[in-house]
Design a protein around this nucleic acid. Sequence first.
DNA 1: CTTCTTCCATAGCGTTCGATATGGAACGCA
DNA 2: TGCGTTCCATATCGAACGCTATGGAAGAAG
Lengths: 206, 206
Amino acid sequence: MDQPEHRPPPSRKTGRPLSFDRDAALEQAMLTFWRHGYETTSIVDLTTAMGVTAPSLYTAFGDKKRLFLEAARRYAGDPEAMAQAIDAAPTAHDAARAMLTAAATAYTGETTPKGCLLASAAASGSAASADVQGVIADFRRSIDGRLRARIDRDIEAGLLPPDTNPAAWAGLVMAVTQGMSVLARDGAPRASLLAIADVALQGWPG
Amino acid sequence: MDQPEHRPPPSRKTGRPLSFDRDAALEQAMLTFWRHGYETTSIVDLTTAMGVTAPSLYTAFGDKKRLFLEAARRYAGDPEAMAQAIDAAPTAHDAARAMLTAAATAYTGETTPKGCLLASAAASGSAASADVQGVIADFRRSIDGRLRARIDRDIEAGLLPPDTNPAAWAGLVMAVTQGMSVLARDGAPRASLLAIADVALQGWPG
DNA sequence: CTTCTTCCATAGCGTTCGATATGGAACGCA
DNA sequence: TGCGTTCCATATCGAACGCTATGGAAGAAG
């Protein structure tokens, strides 16, 4: 995640300032990757959507890979925020349900592409993009770990039976989340995903 | 699914016969698409894996899209077979559990790529491959419909409570199936997926 | 062996890919 | 106004893309 980084806004003092809104351009890049995936989005696709020429894109964002990672970071938001949301929920069950309903809602936005950027953008790819896939997989693993730890905490606190399988339930939440992204891409409406999220936790222990 | 089809084996009477095993070559193509996806697999990738030159590939399989669709058909097997398996199960619950455990097992094969070819090969893509994504989405919808109908049948037969939501439970099975493919690609072992499949149906009504 | 069909191998078609070299215009600063 | 810096626009770069034209070799049929 932090290899040869490209300084995004070194805040130049002199010279001609940027003629485009870097943040707005990044937003458009994110939407384009969200719609078409990482490798299957071309530089021309990006420059068209961003309203920027190729040289400007490269000076502002480094290269395609760094642009994608920055867009992905913008999409996912602060990882620590989500981690704290999981920890701050009253129970692990509440955290899981909040995650699923939030995903169901986010994947079926009317002004955004369907599904999850992280789930679909790098679901497959050539060997050249293995590192991008790895970054996204690490992100998923960190969420899974947080959720598992939250379930562990509830077990120790006596909120969940001792024979509860934390890895299985955390994994189920992750799997349903990723699966809903596929269904959303297939055209499933928001109500369907919310119904799935509801029954997914029907067997939650306790 | 049945647009300008390419006759695969017109069974020529005369002329020089094929010097390679068409079936074995298709198998390798399937594995390559499975590993790297549809658009992110190049013709060179395919010819290398199949041990066949480009002109031979084109005369034998039409073009890249037709080769992929044929490989996908080979991967998924006979759709009617899976449909009959769902119908023939003792209960919808049995059918769902069988689907999930079969998926968990298939996605973590030791001699095959991880995950599901259909789930990862066209999870995203440019507008040019929208039809390929559509074919796969149709396949998913047909399974979902069969499973939903199976649940309906169990409700009518009194095996499930009348207030059971067939779409939600069928959707859950589909979502968990697709989600397990992502987790398998991330490296989740078979035991983890089987545990997820187990808890997924914990809240099954009845 | 001749003929006819089909396949294989080489080479290359035109296009698009990600990424840049170059030159002039725009701006901050003095 | 003049200087130094930075950005934008044009025009590509070499490589890889999907795909195919062409010519000779291989095999089946007579």
